[in-house]
Design a protein around this nucleic acid. Sequence first.
DNA 1: ATTAGCAGTCACAGGCGGAGAGTGCTAAAA
DNA 2: TTTTAGCACTCTCCGCCTGTGACTGCTAAT
Lengths: 342, 342
Amino acid sequence: MVSDLTSRRRAILNIIVAEYIATAMPVASETILRNYQLGVSSATIRNDMAYLEQEGFIAKPHTSAGSIPLVKGYRHYVESIAKDTELPLEEQHRIRDSLRNLEETEQWFKVAAAMMARLVGNVALVTFPKARRYHLKHLELVLLHEFLVLLIVVISETVLRQQFLTFSEPVTQEQLTSISNKLNTHYAGLTSSQILAKKLLPTAEEKRVTEAVADMMVAEDELDYHATYLEGLRLMLGQPEFIRKDRMLRIMELMEARDWLKPMLRQQAETEQVQIVIGEESHDESLKDLSLVLSRYGIPQKARGAIGVIGPTRMDYRRAISTVNYMSQVLSYLVSGVYGED
Amino acid sequence: MVSDLTSRRRAILNIIVAEYIATAMPVASETILRNYQLGVSSATIRNDMAYLEQEGFIAKPHTSAGSIPLVKGYRHYVESIAKDTELPLEEQHRIRDSLRNLEETEQWFKVAAAMMARLVGNVALVTFPKARRYHLKHLELVLLHEFLVLLIVVISETVLRQQFLTFSEPVTQEQLTSISNKLNTHYAGLTSSQILAKKLLPTAEEKRVTEAVADMMVAEDELDYHATYLEGLRLMLGQPEFIRKDRMLRIMELMEARDWLKPMLRQQAETEQVQIVIGEESHDESLKDLSLVLSRYGIPQKARGAIGVIGPTRMDYRRAISTVNYMSQVLSYLVSGVYGED
DNA sequence: ATTAGCAGTCACAGGCGGAGAGTGCTAAAA
DNA sequence: TTTTAGCACTCTCCGCCTGTGACTGCTAAT
């Protein structure tokens, strides 16, 4: 997809995009002349801008205004910037350290999202890692009182679920322990369907527990991404594009509803490297002036998650890409530690 | 704190507050004349309004405008409305049913907050219930691989925590099971300090686990409210008082920072019934045009939480009070079920 | 104590105009 | 053919003004 623009036109286009990203103001030919050494006059720049406008890269808000990039212009820009810019080492260290010091796994993803949001000044998206198919690691039954039992299930190393079970007969902790021992030896390492297929003439209580466990695992299997953190909405809404209140509220609604997430992530799931979706490219009316920079992290098959940045089309793509890249590496590293890989 | 206003002046004050709550517009004497049968002319109403203004109940945004309530006016209003209005039965049922159908305890509080936010069109606050002093219910060790172990701790029936432990020597699941059995028999039902006080000549591994468990419990003890859901920000920001963007952003920042919560909840902890804090009454600059309707729920000593509504001073107090009241009853009921009371 | 009547105040919306920013075009230069 | 200087033209933005309408506060009568 190499464009057939002359090198000066390419340069001017990239300047316009970069300048607009930095200032949020339409870019005038004089501004380009002043801030960059192109060796040509503003009139020449204007001629090139007229051409770029004709080709649909840029547009003017009104007749006597500077230019702002269109989707096609942003696209050209992101294709042309280096995808491998790295975050400053010191920032890398800070990120790594703050994540490593967390005690609970669940925190990794939330904290990662919060840090990333601050780094890019936009909304950060981090999903929990998810396996293709979950297997049971461990189950545990704790007696709360007489009829009420707490069922704790560990699924595939990292997923911890709890549920109350009410029995019709009073039980003791000893009974519960023997049930959980039995079920653990028979079910450990199995998937939900394997568990249900296994016939081991269970007692009523064992049957009850088995079903509950299988239900939880099925629910887990069927989730696309069972938790998705979206952090930094406030930072994003501080941007000048959201000056109008109705737009702010629409975005907030979007972040609560989250129905656009699923198709987005499903599409993302196919590809391997950082993917950038600019404005209307998403074919989703409600996302039409937002862009996404998305990547994946984790271990293929076993535990994959998505990580990304959401911002106005005018976001700092270079920064977003490098941050997402680094963050996905760190999370992959952390997750593989839990799964005993590498 | 009964005020010495004539009954007509009281009536007019309450009309002004109610009308302003409903319309968000300054209330004119003519409006009162038109919408309510007071049997006096607008000039008389104006005279009374002048008195109410002089006494600090209401004020005018500018000379030739209607009146809006001041904090003192709102205070008079909330004191005078019935505190025992009930939600419609059908709404009560809907709330009860949606909460009862949830499988995970953690969901109760989040869902309760979301429902309440929708009901009052403002921000709903729900904290997790918290005990005065936690005791250990159960601990469990699950081998993930060689050196990496997942420690699961159940604290006081409802709090479930997990943490990874990395051992310097490889261990087997059998070893882990015997460790957890031993620790469970010795530690069950104890508080963190009791656990630390107990000297049972532990092995290095047992020592490691004991310390981790105690750490988690101490952390839990020290938290004021370990999770606080604030839902419905979008609904609140839809209100006309937040038309200016900087105010919206300030509120969003407030909801993220949450440092005002602790003093608020601590103060609330002393009293038993629904507490209403109007605007500046909080003595917190950042909360000066917000009001809170707060209540508690749960079981004294064992598991107490806070629940409430946050909105602009111009919020519908009647609705907020009845909703908070009912919600706290439902949550108390649910929580006592888990603790086997009642 | 209440009311009618009326003058006075102030916010608000619409219209006007000048300044400034930036372009597009034209004609000349390279 | 490409680039440039020069200039007319367009359009936004901002401040200013003014008329209108919404309310009040006051006064004098009831």
